[in-house]
């Protein structure tokens, strides 16, 4: 059961903007832990098998990025050893790990974004701000699969007349590839005129366009959006006050455990777990519906 993605695009987009920008921002260990935990759990909820496949990519990436920092940065007081006269410090290692965690979390958020914010949702939102561009985007999006199909046809036709771009010398291959692209471009531009005529024939440019969509903004959307905004503001405030600040250099700062800080930590956790909560609620609801049927 997919629950989160049925919300209005503005809600989905706001969530990802909030989650991704805050995730990029907070390097405080507690915050990082919350970020990576929420990002992973939402990934499991939304992408399942795909997520487990992606580990092959994320784990090496994590280590690679964690290693780079101590190589280029020698700040910090807790020196482990010296390599070629450069200090290898615990702070630099920890900072590397923090950076790596942040980057992996951001990538994870984006992979959720890619599942939830399908192109039509983005085009719809974008269309509210910039109608002509969003239309350009929509046309382009439609053309890509069409051009790919045409490319395979051109490739075959050219193979028959001896212009096979997959065999022969490097120069021959390059020549064939350019030839194929060139054929595609002539074809595409010629057809584009029809498309433009078809837009004009249907009154494009006569009046200011309205943006039609199949999306409805329901009460639940308003409710969730309000929560997202509220929590985002509270986290913004937290960062302003300094709760989210954590120093790695010259040496580690302290993690605060006073009530105020704990409240702020919770508000961050609350913000990031909105989609997961919605997914779980949806799943439970569905199960109870099914059992009563």
């Amino acid at each position: 059961m997919k629950a989160f993605e049925t919300f209005h695009p503005i809600v989905l987009f706001s969530f990802f903007v909030a989650a991704i920008s805050l995730s990029m921002f907070f390097m405080h260990p507690i915050y990082l832990a919350i970020t990576i935990f929420s990002a992973i759990s939402l990934n499991i909820a939304l992408r399942r098998q795909l997520f487990f496949k992606d580990w092959k990519l994320y784990v090496p990436l994590f280590f690679l990025m964690a290693i780079i920092n101590p190589l280029i940065s020698h700040n910090g007081q807790l020196v482990l050893l010296y390599i070629n006269g450069n200090a290898l410090t615990v702070e630099a290692i920890m900072y590397g790990i923090a950076i790596a965690t942040m980057i992996v979390a951001v990538m994870l958020w984006f992979s959720c974004y890619n599942v939830v914010m399908t192109s039509d949702k983005f085009i719809y939102l974008f269309g509210k701000v910039s109608p002509a561009l969003s239309l350009t985007l929509s046309i382009s999006l439609r053309l890509v699969p069409r051009f790919r199909h045409q490319l395979t046809q051109i490739v075959q036709a050219q193979k028959v007349i001896g212009m096979d771009y997959t065999t022969g010398s490097l120069w021959h291959r390059i020549k064939c590839t350019m030839r194929i692209l060139s054929i595609l471009i002539t074809w595409a531009l010629d057809n584009a005129i029809d498309t433009a005529d078809s837009m004009k024939a249907r009154g494009y440019g006569i009046k200011k366009r309205t943006a039609f969509s199949l999306f409805f903004f329901e009460r639940r959307d308003g409710f969730v959006l309000a929560i997202i905004i509220l929590l985002f503001v509270s986290n913004f405030a937290a960062s302003f006050i300094g709760t989210t600040t954590f120093y790695f250099y010259p040496t580690f700062g302290a993690v605060k455990w006073d009530i105020g800080s704990i409240l702020f930590y919770s508000s961050y956790f609350a913000l990031l777990s909105i989609p997961l909560a919605i997914e779980i609620k949806g799943a439970l609801k569905w199960r109870s519906l099914k059992s009563t049927m």
Binding site: A132, I139, S140, V144, L181, L189, I193, A196
Partner: peptide, 10 residues
């Protein structure tokens, strides 16, 4: 619009 869309799609 269409020409820009076509060139990007290509």
């Amino acid at each position: 619009i269409v020409v820009i869309a076509v060139m990007s799609a290509i």
